[in-house]
């Protein structure tokens, strides 16, 4: 489904953000990308939809080599990669509904979207998605009236209305409280399962990642240090990813919280 082959990014300053990243993600799999700030997590997901151009290596989505596409091909393929940003990436002055429909921008011309002449099936789909993410009642609210968690739900609906094959998710919970963070992570994972979507989620919070995903990839200095199930994140592994620290606390706390979460 998604294949990365020796993906490398060197910034003009000489900083090596990614070094020979090779991995494969089958459809339906949700992968958490962890690592310290500056490890290359954001660069990696942006190299896939080419918001950042990789220096060498390949990214292949269903037999299409993304890294070799010209601008027209890239436009077409970007539709198949829904991106979810930190909560603030909504057009503040538009309504929830308009924000969701803007996800169809790559499909319909902009003048049509200006005058809100979206095809009826797009509008129907937008209502279905808003219902699914629990915001049906908010469809006509302005985006800047929403709470952080609600905004992120709009972002999710907008990414999904693109009808993507792959979700690229950049720090979805970075500015959310712990409870909302879990709800958002749960929603993303459920939706990926329902729609058989692959997803890469950049995330700071190791505990949160362990709670919801089936596979974790750890990056340090742009190099993959760990690739495996969340149970494999032992203190030793976390030390190779993040450096020396006492990890027992972190992991134990996770297990307890996780249990409570499952019970509730």
């Amino acid at each position: 489904m998604l294949k990365l082959e020796q993906l490398t990014k060197v910034y003009p300053t000489g900083d090596k953000a990614l070094t020979d990243v090779t991995l494969e993600i089958p459809s339906g799999q949700v992968v958490a990308l962890i690592g310290p700030s500056g490890a290359g997590k954001s660069t990696l997901i942006r190299c896939i939809n080419r918001l950042v151009s990789p220096s060498s290596g390949k990214a292949i989505l269903d037999d299409v080599e993304l890294t070799a596409l010209g601008s027209a091909g890239l436009r077409r393929e970007r539709r198949r990669m829904g991106m979810i940003f930190q909560e603030y990436a909504l057009v503040e002055r538009l309504t929830v509904m308009e924000n969701v429909l803007s996800g169809r921008l790559g499909y319909v011309g902009f003048w049509r979207s200006y005058f809100r002449k979206f095809p009826q099936k797009d509008v129907d789909e937008a209502f279905r998605l808003l219902d699914r993410v629990g915001l049906l009642a908010m469809a006509d609210k302005r985006a800047d009236e929403l709470s952080g968690g609600q905004r992120q739900r709009v972002g999710i609906a907008r990414a999904l209305i693109q009808d993507p094959a792959l979700l690229l998710v950049d720090e979805p919970t970075a500015s959310l409280d712990p409870k909302t963070s879990r709800q958002i992570m749960r929603l993303i994972c459920e939706l990926c399962k329902e729609r058989d979507l692959a997803a890469i989620i950049n995330i700071h919070d190791v505990a949160l990642a362990q709670m919801f995903v089936e596979r974790v990839i750890g990056l340090r200095f742009g190099v993959v240090q760990f690739d495996g199930p969340p149970e494999g994140l032992t203190p030793d592994v976390l030390t190779t990813i993040y450096g020396e620290e006492d990890w027992k606390e972190t992991i134990q706390k996770v297990d307890e919280e996780d249990l409570q979460d499952v019970v509730s």
């Binding site: 942006r46 939809n49 918001l51 436009r75 077409r76 970007r78 539709r79 990669m81 991106m83 940003f85 990436a89 803007s102 996800g103 921008l105 790559g106 011309g109 902009f110 693109q162 690229l168």
Partner: peptide, 12 residues
């Protein structure tokens, strides 16, 4: 980033 990720054209 948002607009580019949604395949918006320059005039969009």
């Amino acid at each position: 980033e948002l607009l580019r990720s949604m395949s918006a054209r320059r005039r969009d």
